[in-house]
Amino acid sequence: MTYRSKSVKEYWAARWEDIPADVPMDNAHVYPLKYAEMTVQDKNGRILEAGCGAGRILRYYHQHGYDIVGMDYIDVAISKLKAIDSTLQVETGDITALRYPDQSFKYVLAFGLYHNLEHDLDKAIGETCRVLERGGAVCASFRADNIQTRMTDWLAECKSKKAGKTAGPRAFHKMNLSKDEFARLFTRAGFLIEFIGPVENMPFLYKFAAFRASAHKRFDENKARSEGYRLSWLGRHLQNLLMRLMPDQFCNIYVLIARKT
């Protein structure tokens, strides 16, 4: 578990309050769109994006004519998406108690969702299975329990101490799992795993401006979320070396694609 000064809900409410709704993601070579495209094979299949956040994946599929519903438990994220495009199907909801009937969707996309749950993780994945059609697929990511996560948490702790934010009680922030632990959750719920692997969402070196691409030196979260977190030539080569040598230690998430049996 990772603990911070804010609860997970406070963290996401503040984060989505601070940035505008996303533009549609435009880089299909990076997470998460790369893995969504590996999953969604049928344009006529209905999609649920659970934990749609600021909307980069939701808006990508919506603009390409897919039937996609976006759900998030942070009201401000949903309000911003409704304001920017009234034709989006979006609503506030809870992954542990979905309102949809059984077998409502062919695909569920859940990027960075399940690791926000301190409790009821099996219940959330069970609900995901329930609303999927037989043969339908889920694509999900989960925070990795590894060296990179520990370094990221250490840097965040140092930043909080510098800002004087560590004096109060600590609140649950994220759950971190190994690849095998993540896989077992879905196998236990009745899924057949087709892919699971280490992935870089934000590469560790991106946290340091010196290693970012020139257009990313000044951090713009919406830009990074649309284009991917781009590194300089040196940053890419160093990050690639780390991923070649120890992919399970220098990824920051695992991505899983599984099918309901």
Rank of each mutant, 00 (worst) to 15 (best):
Y61T: 02
D145A: 12
E133F: 01
E49Y: 07
E49H: 03
V8R: 04
I125G: 14
A13F: 00
Q239M: 14
M38A: 11
E91M: 13
P32C: 08
S160K: 03
Y31K: 03
S141P: 09
D153F: 02
T87K: 11
F105A: 04
K162Q: 08
T187Y: 14
R56I: 06
D122M: 11
A258T: 09
R225D: 14
D18W: 04
H216S: 04
M246W: 15
G126Y: 03
Q103C: 04
D220S: 14
L81Q: 03
T128N: 14
Y254I: 07
D102T: 08
D248M: 10
G55L: 04
L113K: 07
A13D: 14
Y35L: 06
G197Q: 10
S79F: 05
A171Y: 15
S232Y: 08
G126F: 05
W154P: 00
E127M: 08
K6V: 02
L113E: 03
L205R: 11
I47P: 02
E17G: 12
L121Q: 15
G55S: 07
D22H: 04
S160R: 13
G190V: 13
K260C: 12
I74H: 06
N44S: 11
Y66A: 07
A124H: 05
W16F: 15
K82H: 12
Y206D: 03
M243N: 11
R15H: 05
A83W: 01
L113Y: 03
D145N: 13
L48W: 08
S160Q: 12
L48N: 04
E17H: 07
V255I: 11
K9R: 13
H62E: 01
F172I: 13
K162A: 07
Q239L: 11
P32T: 04
Y254C: 12
E127K: 04
Y100S: 00
A144W: 01
Y100E: 02
P247Y: 13
A77D: 10
R46M: 12
N252G: 14
M202Q: 15
F219M: 10
A189N: 15
M151T: 00
F186K: 09
L132M: 10
K9W: 08
L109P: 09
F182Q: 09
A77I: 06
K34F: 11
G65A: 09
T96I: 08
K217S: 00
P203R: 12
N116C: 14
Y11M: 10
K162N: 06
K217Y: 01
Y229W: 15
A167D: 07
V40P: 04
R4I: 00
D102K: 06
A140D: 05
Q41R: 14
H115N: 12
C139T: 12
R150K: 15
M246E: 14
A213T: 00
E49F: 04
S86I: 01
S214G: 03
I253W: 02
V30K: 09
A224W: 03
I78A: 07
F111Y: 15
M246N: 07
L98M: 13
K165S: 02
S160F: 00
K43N: 11
M151C: 10
K159S: 06
I57T: 06
H115T: 11
F195I: 09
